[in-house]
Amino acid sequence: MEKIRDIADEFVRVRLTQIESSNLKLFDFDYDLTFMVFFLSPEETVYARYGGRCEQGPDERQSLAGLRYTMKSVLAEHSAENRRFAPMEGGKPFFIGEIAPRSGLGRCIHCHQAKEVMYNKIDRDGDWDLNLAFRFPPPDNLGLKLEVDRSNIVERIAADSVADKAGLKEGDIVNSLNDVPIHSFGDAQYALDRAPKIGSIPVSWQRGAETHESRIELPDRWWRTDITWRPSLQNLIASPRLYGKDLTTDEKTALGLKEKQLAFRLPDTISEQPRLAGIQGGDIVYGVEGRHLEMGAYDFQTYFRSHFIKGEDVVINIIRDGMKLERKMRLAWR
């Protein structure tokens, strides 16, 4: 509180500790988070969101300094002549209690549980889409890394990324992304949650006194992220069910593989999932989806869990009798 005390009284502050009584059409956010701030006008339209995390840890994308920065940015927006607001879905309010059983006995529905309830309903209705596992992608997926303490300023642009090609540079202030005003990392995630799977999205930024506008071309499967940290999606984390002993350097060289490249030999008996894909005991696994992976068999398990989810078809690259082959493997669903 000390770090925001001087500007805190510029806001009417309210803390909500139960999601049951909140309109989730209005408070639409990444429900796997344990902390999220909404800034709204007195007319109940959203200026900004603050909060977010990534697989590296719960506080890698948020700080008190960042919250303070966003609060100041919102106050400037609030007093601007032409106030900007985040777009939101229309329609009647939605409360989780409409589809969730009563929590009862004083139990609290955690935010991630609200998401589980929503996803179970979608699944029951037959509308499940694997891409729902990858909601609220970070701007990093486009090569755009925002600062943590000044949360709409570009910290780094990945070389040759789509953000780089759009013209963004380190130090730029991102004004808007996909027509969502950007005050924070949380806003950028919300903007990308609304973005199409293919095509391009508008971006606007400030560099010194100049305002720049461009479009970011969305790359293939740009929205995918590591879901292993998300409490709501633990049942979607996939296992390759491919285990074995790493090849020696000499064995790799004999097969034309690089020294650090993934290559392990499967035992004689393998599990049903790879067997159904036409993979056999004794095959050598040396890649996935044609990607060159530098790791051992043990790290391959972690890599796989953070890159693929249950229900997907994944191409496994194998070597059998010196021949390079591909086998499409369906990752067991439920």
Partner: peptide, 15 residues
């Protein structure tokens, strides 16, 4: 917020 014309700061915090 309506009375004071101040913006709202709404915090969701998991307990």
């Amino acid at each position: 917020a309506r009375r004071s014309k101040k913006p709202l700061m709404v915090v969701f915090r998991c307990v």
